[in-house]
Nucleic acid binder design. Sequence first.
DNA 1: TGCCATGTTAAACT
DNA 2: GAGTTTAACATGGC
Length: 246
Amino acid sequence: MPEGPSILIAKNTLTAIIKGKLIIHASGNAKIEMALVTKQKVLDVRSWGKHLLICLPTCTIRIHFLMFGSYSIDEQTKKDSSVRLKLELAQHSIYFYTCSVKLLVEDINSIYDWEADVLNDSWNAKKARFKLKAIPETMICDALLDQQIFSGVGNIIKNEVLYRIKLHPETLLKNTPPRKLTELIKEARNYSFDFLRWKTEFTLRKHWLAHTKKICLRCQVPFIKKYCGLTQRRTFFCNHCQVKYE
DNA sequence: TGCCATGTTAAACT
DNA sequence: GAGTTTAACATGGC
């Protein structure tokens, strides 16, 4: 569920069935004021990276699935006590489980930088480059997971992007050649769309070339598995073909 | 069975 | 108050 492309799939699925429809009743164990959601019309369903946004006239429901979140449509797939949020509409009911639910009262355009979302039409590569330039001491593996720069990129995408462009995860931004940086920014978006397509086809896992892999297909040498950078997330890489610039 | 992981936030430290 | 570290959340696969 968690990485950006999965959220985009959820956005598209939900848009088709709830956009323009009235929420007749809202319930669940989410710590939000359910009355603010009830009897409101769904103006739009949007996403920003890993955030799913259900826009209503007076507020926006922000859903973040964290690591294990899920949702179901029309059929409750988990026990009553684990329903975080249920939205009942005339034709459909939507159930959300193990996610973070928050009501945003502010204008979402002032909260979210749409140009930072790697899957958004407004994605701005130049702006990403500018943001990267401001943090020269940061490792590439940490920069890719920075949601203010690459919103929607998660740990799987991180590993796959770095393998594709043959870049060592512990390379510092200040040591990264400009041409490599261009590739990085381009591939963060490009791979995210591949991820999206494979996820839609239920073939994502079999397309992994680095994430959880033991051997480099290019070099036939063992992969390194290491908790890299400040983010300390699992990183799978090949010491032989992924260049570390120093 | 116990551990680990597609993630983030807030509390608890220094 | 700033910056850093730890805990919490909580499901499913191996």
